[in-house]
Amino acid sequence: MMRKFVCGICGFVYDESLGYPEGGIAPGLKWEDLPEDWICPLCGATKVEFKEQETVIPEEKKQSSLDEEHQEKIRELSFKELSALCSNLSKGCEKQYRNEEADLFRQLAEYYDSKSSAAFEAQISDLAALIEADLSSGYENANRRAAAVSDRGALRALTWGEKVTRILSSLLSRYEKQGETLLANTNVYVCEICGFVYIGDEAPEICPVCKVPNLKIAQIQRG
């Protein structure tokens, strides 16, 4: 029986009966016979991000530990978080054509950026560890809490963020395996709305995560 596999990042469907002739994959090719380094033609996700369509298990509803959560205090914002909060408010002002306010929030964001820079040695492995922590517990925890109170805005942001984080995880593991050849003779793009990172010759028509048209997808230059 022919099966279908769905990309967990962008929703692209690999149908075994159709193959992917545009990418040189003949109709009828079994999922397990697709090369291990095959990537989603739409968003560049690796094979591990795909799930078989029939076997999608509905998410189990977990009892939230409300008692514990009720006793929480609101977390204090760090300088780095204040910076991101202000840079986002600056964008919000731009959308309302409030240029003076946008400049002031940008000034505050830069101030908090300058306060948070500490001296340390950066490692790719530190990045990978944080990404794995977000994927193994951060999103699950936040999704459970947001679903418990039907917070649609939070659920929307978490859906985009989790997809983008999976892409970053898959990019880091590809970089680890392939090194610089990953980016040889091709381009790097970032969606300025959701943060989706795309490696390819041309930016996709619309962002596969948030569906914004590619006028909002920026190229990251080298050098």
Binding site: K80, S87, N88, A157, L168, V188, V190, G195, I220, R222
Partner: peptide, 29 residues
């Protein structure tokens, strides 16, 4: 090449942080 990748990762993370903060009660200025 690593610099290009790191710049993309940095930008991506700032955007995700902004979105989380926006939805944590700071939607409008």
């Amino acid at each position: 090449v690593l610099r290009q990748l790191a710049e993309a990762l940095g930008k991506s993370n700032r955007l995700m942080a902004e979105d989380m903060l926006r939805e944590s009660g700071y939607m409008l200025p």
